[in-house]
């Protein structure tokens, strides 16, 4: 237990970092340390060697690209909240505002959150709902994976041992879209999600038909999951009863919550259903039925 790693590499360039990954495997990647430092201290995770990315400035950026934005892996949660260039993706700031506490937000990174792939991560559902694409880079080149293809299971991703999460690309948003982010935590601040949902939806101004809806949830399955049942709203003009019905279907079919130390499966399903129904109602501007 608790043995110190044999080697810690702290490269200053991406190329060196990729070389370490290629030549020194197995290497555990360290970003802001908010997860790994706890794992190491408690002895839950043992590592042979560590690649410390903190000094790789090339991974710290936010820039416009291909009609969207590309966010470097070392971008912190605080930067998600503060970067004016991310103003077109308000879900990011909404998520960041509720993310852990200030001390953690200053250290936790986008890449670290993705790489850890906790099922309770707040950022997973947001990136999923925003159709994010993860860019993995190795010495051999890059791979671009949409979030659903990247997040594979409980703390498991599609990243190969020789790859780094380099960045995430988010497509630009349409003016008709509305988004919502809701986290049901264990307390009002600095909490871990019991249920977390991000949702983006739009409807045609003329016909009133739903043109698109994308929602994903965390803490309700072994990984972030899409609420795929909501797709049946597309092309319809749902009323409040329809939203209630579809949210019940989503809460039944699209998740597989468990009882754990933070909450119960029954509660998670219930909260998910109520939260999703509410989010659909507000984003699609469906009038509430009396009662």
């Amino acid at each position: 237990m608790n043995a110190a790693p044999t080697a810690v590499y702290s490269p200053r360039s991406l190329a060196t970092a990729l070389a370490v990954l290629a030549d020194r495997a197995p290497v555990t990647v360290l970003a802001g340390g908010t997860d790994l430092m706890v794992e190491l201290r408690t002895g839950r995770t043992q590592v042979a060697s560590v690649l410390d990315l903190w000094g790789v400035e090339e991974l710290r950026f936010v820039r416009a690209e291909a009609g969207g934005v590309r966010i470097g892996a070392l971008t912190t949660i605080t930067e998600l909240r503060r970067q004016p260039s991310l103003g077109a993706w308000p879900l990011l700031a909404a998520c960041a505002a509720d993310f852990a506490a200030e001390q953690i937000r200053n250290r936790a990174t986008v890449g670290g959150s993705l790489g850890t792939a906790s099922p309770a991560a707040d950022l997973g559902p947001v990136l999923w709902a925003l159709d994010a694409v993860v860019r993995l880079r190795s010495r051999d080149g890059v791979r671009d994976l949409p979030i659903p293809a990247f997040l594979l299971g409980y703390r498991r991703t599609a990243r190969r041992a020789d790859e780094l999460i380099e960045s995430v690309w988010l497509p630009g948003r349409l003016p008709t879209e509305r988004g919502a982010f809701v986290k049901v935590g264990t307390r009002d601040a600095q909490s871990i999600a019991k249920v977390v949902v991000a949702l983006v939806a739009s409807r045609d101004a003329g016909s009133g038909q739903v043109t698109a809806v994308r929602a994903a949830a965390g803490s309700v399955a072994e990984r972030t999951v899409e609420l795929a049942s909501l797709q049946e709203l597309v092309g319809r003009r749902p009323d409040a009863a329809a939203l209630l019905a579809v949210s019940r279907v989503a809460a039944s079919r699209d998740c597989a919550p468990i009882d754990d130390v933070r909450s119960s499966a029954v509660y998670r399903r219930h909260a998910l259903q109520r939260v999703v129904c509410d989010m659909l109602t507000s984003t699609l501007e469906v009038p509430l039925e009396d009662g």
Partner: peptide, 10 residues
């Protein structure tokens, strides 16, 4: 920051 989570190398 929480100094318990910050490695010296950083």
């Amino acid at each position: 920051v929480n100094s318990c989570l910050v490695p010296a190398c950083q």
